[in-house]
Write a protein that binds this DNA or RNA. Structure first.
Length: 484
RNA sequence: GGCCCAUUGGUCAAGCGGUUAAGACACCGCCCUUUCACGGCGGCUACAGGGGUUCGAAUCCCCUAUGGGUCACCA
C-alpha cells in the first residue's frame, strides 16, 4: 500500500491571507484529499518580530471559510504536534546539534557587526555577500571553549565547495545549481529559533509530509533543502513549486500595494465559492473545458500535472464572471438571503417586497456590493431631466411619451388588484387600443418609475414593486415634467 | 550583477513532433427583448525573435530579447 499523502499549509501569522496563500493552501488540500490523505496546518512563527496578535485566529477562520478544513493543527491537535513552531524550539536545537555531528553544519560565533562589515566589503568589491566560513575553521577545543563561555552562536549549513546539486520538482522538472553559488546559510538563529529554511526541513520530515507545495519564489533555495535532507539521511518529499500570481502590471500581488486579500474580496461582495473556483484555475488547468467546479469535483479533477509553470495575472473581470455565475446558479431564496444585508440602508420603505427586488436583481448582479446603487431609486425618485424619455430605438419623444403617460394614468388608477400580471394585461390592452408600439408605452412608464436611464427590470416589474400609490405618483411627476 | 525559472490573442489557458492552434473572460456586432441584464448566434485578435534537429515543429536543442524569482540571524 502506498504511503498516505500528507500535505501542509504553513503560513506565518501576518494577519491576512493573500490570494497566493489561498491558492497554495487549496492545492495542498486538493493534493491530499484527492488521495484521501491528510491536510495539516502548521504555524510558522519563528520570526518573533513579525508576529501579529490574533493572526492565528484569522488563519483558522479563513481556512474554514474557504472550506479547507485541516486534519491536524494547533487548534485540533494530532499525532505530530506541536503544530506551532515556536513551541517546537527544543527540537530544532536538538536537530541542529545532530547535523553538526553529522558534518552538515557548524557553529558560528561571528558577531553581526563582523558580518555587516564583511558584507560591506564584499559589496564594495562588486560582489554579493557570502559568508567567509571564518568559523568553519574553528577547532573542536575552540568551539567547546566558546560554548562553555556562553558565547552567542548560530548554526550554519555547510555547503559543498564543488560540484552541483540537483533536485526534482513535480512541475519544473530537474533543476541543477552550482554548489559554489550556495551560501552557508544560517539554520539556527542566535535566539535559538530556527530559520524558515531549517524549520521547514525538520518539521516536514518529522510530520511526515509527502508533498511540499510552495510558491515559485522558493525554487532557487530548494537545492539547499536537498542537501539538508541528504545530510540527515532523510527521504526527500515531492516538491511542488507553483507559479506566482501577479497583478495586471506584472508585479507580485501584495497587500502593501493595496491588492485585495481573500477577506477583502469577500467584503467586496464576492462569494467564497466563486473566489475559490477562480483561484484554483489561476495556474492550474483540468485539461478539459470545465470551469465551474464544486470542491468535490476539484478533489476528483485536480492533478499536479495540470499546474502551469508560468505566472498568472489576477483578472478581476474573470472573477466577476465567476461570481455572477455562482449568483445565477442560486435559488431565489438563497440569493435573497445573501442580498438582504445589502438592502439595509438602501431600501428603507417597509412596504417594499424585497423578495421581488431580489428576483429582478439576481440575473443582473455580478458583485453584491453593486446592489445598493441599483435599487436606490426605490426609496425615492431621483431628480431627472425629461430628455430621459427620448430614446431612438424605442421610438419615443417627449411628446409621445407625454401622451402615453397621460393615457396610462387613468388605466393604472383603475386597477384594483395591483400585481404584475394585471398591470401587464391592462397596459398591453391600452397599447393595442392606441395602436402604438409596446416600447412607446413601456419606455416612458419605466422611465417615470425609475427616473434613471437604466434600471433593473422593466415597467411592469417596477410598477409592481413600487406599489400602486407610488407608481401612480411617479407617473404624475413624469406628466408634469413633460408638460412644462 | 551572479544563479534559477518562464514566454501561445488584452487576460486565464488547451496543446507533449503532423490540429482549419481548442475553450473561457473581456471587447465588438447581431438576435431575443419594455431599458439594463440573462440567454442565443457570430466576430476580433496568439505560438517573443533568430538559428538548428527533422520529411514535418507552438511542441526537441542552442542563442538573443523580455518578464519574473532569488541572493537576510524574513518567511
Amino acid at each position: 500500500m502506498a504511503k498516505e499523502i500528507r500535505t501542509r499549509y504553513a503560513p506565518s501569522p501576518t494577519g491576512y491571507m493573500h490570494i497566493g496563500n489561498l491558492r497554495t493552501a487549496l492545492y495542498e488540500y486538493l493534493i491530499a484529499k484527492a488521495e484521501n490523505g491528510k491536510f495539516i496546518l502548521r504555524i510558522e512563527d519563528t520570526d518573533q518580530e513579525r508576529y501579529v496578535e490574533d493572526a492565528v485566529d484569522v488563519i483558522y477562520k479563513t481556512l474554514k471559510m474557504a472550506g479547507l478544513e485541516h486534519d491536524e493543527g494547533p487548534d485540533i491537535g494530532g499525532n505530530y504536534g506541536p503544530y506551532i513552531q515556536s513551541e517546537r524550539k527544543p527540537l530544532y536545537m536538538e536537530y541542529a546539534k545532530k547535523l553538526v555531528e553529522l558534518g552538515g553544519a557548524y557553529y558560528c560565533f561571528c558577531t553581526k557587526e563582523r558580518l555587516a562589515k564583511l558584507k560591506e566589503e564584499q559589496e564594495a568589491a562588486g560582489g554579493v555577500f557570502k559568508y567567509d566560513r571564518c568559523c568553519a575553521k574553528l577547532s573542536k577545543e575552540e568551539i567547546d571553549q566558546k560554548l562553555a563561555n556562553n558565547e552567542p552562536f548560530v548554526v550554519r549549513q555547510k555547503m559543498p565547495d564543488t560540484g552541483t546539486t540537483s533536485f526534482d520538482d513535480a512541475v519544473y522538472g530537474t533543476i541543477t545549481v552550482e554548489n559554489s553559488s550556495l551560501d552557508d546559510q544560517i539554520l539556527l538563529k542566535s535566539d535559538g529559533l530556527p530559520t524558515y529554511n531549517f524549520a521547514n526541513v525538520v518539521d516536514d520530515h518529522l510530520m511526515e509530509i509527502t508533498h511540499v507545495v510552495r510558491g515559485n519564489e522558493y525554487l532557487s533555495s530548494a537545492p539547499k533543502y536537498n542537501l539538508l535532507y541528504e545530510a540527515f539521511g532523510w527521504d526527500i518529499p515531492t516538491y511542488v513549486h507553483v507559479p506566482l500570481i501577479l497583478k495586471s502590471s506584472g508585479q507580485k500581488l501584495s497587500k502593501r500595494s493595496g491588492d485585495p486579500s481573500f477577506e477583502d474580496l469577500v467584503s467586496m461582495g464576492y462569494l467564497i465559492d466563486a473566489i475559490v473556483n477562480y483561484v484554483v484555475l489561476l495556474g492550474w488547468s483540468p485539461g478539459t473545458n470545465q470551469e465551474i467546479f464544486t470542491m468535490d469535483e476539484l478533489k476528483q479533477a485536480f492533478k499536479i500535472e495540470g499546474i502551469s509553470k508560468s505566472p498568472a495575472i489576477f483578472d478581476i473581470n474573470k472573477l466577476n464572471w465567476f461570481n455572477a455565475e455562482y449568483i445565477r446558479k442560486m435559488s431565489l431564496d438563497e440569493f435573497h438571503e445573501i442580498a438582504k444585508p445589502y438592502y439595509e440602508g438602501a431600501i428603507n420603505n417597509e412596504n417594499i417586497d424585497l423578495k421581488k427586488v431580489s428576483k429582478i436583481l439576481q440575473p443582473r448582479t455580478e458583485v453584491l456590493t453593486s446592489i445598493p446603487g441599483n435599487v436606490d431609486f426605490i426609496d425615492s425618485l431621483p431628480e431627472y431631466g425629461k430628455e430621459l424619455y427620448v430614446h431612438k430605438k424605442m421610438k419615443t419623444t417627449e411628446e409621445n411619451s407625454l401622451e402615453s403617460l397621460k393615457a396610462a394614468l387613468p388605466v393604472l388608477e383603475g386597477i384594483s388588484d395591483w400585481n404584475e400580471q394585471v398591470i401587464h394585461d391592462v397596459v398591453m390592452d391600452l397599447v393595442v387600443k392606441l395602436g402604438i408600439k409596446n416600447s412607446q408605452m413601456l419606455w416612458p412608464i419605466r422611465t417615470a418609475l425609475s427616473g434613471k436611464a437604466v434600471s433593473p427590470g422593466g415597467a411592469m416589474e417596477l410598477a409592481d414593486i413600487l406599489g400602486k400609490d407610488e407608481a401612480i405618483r411617479r407617473v404624475k411627476v413624469g406628466i408634469e415634467k413633460l408638460s412644462v
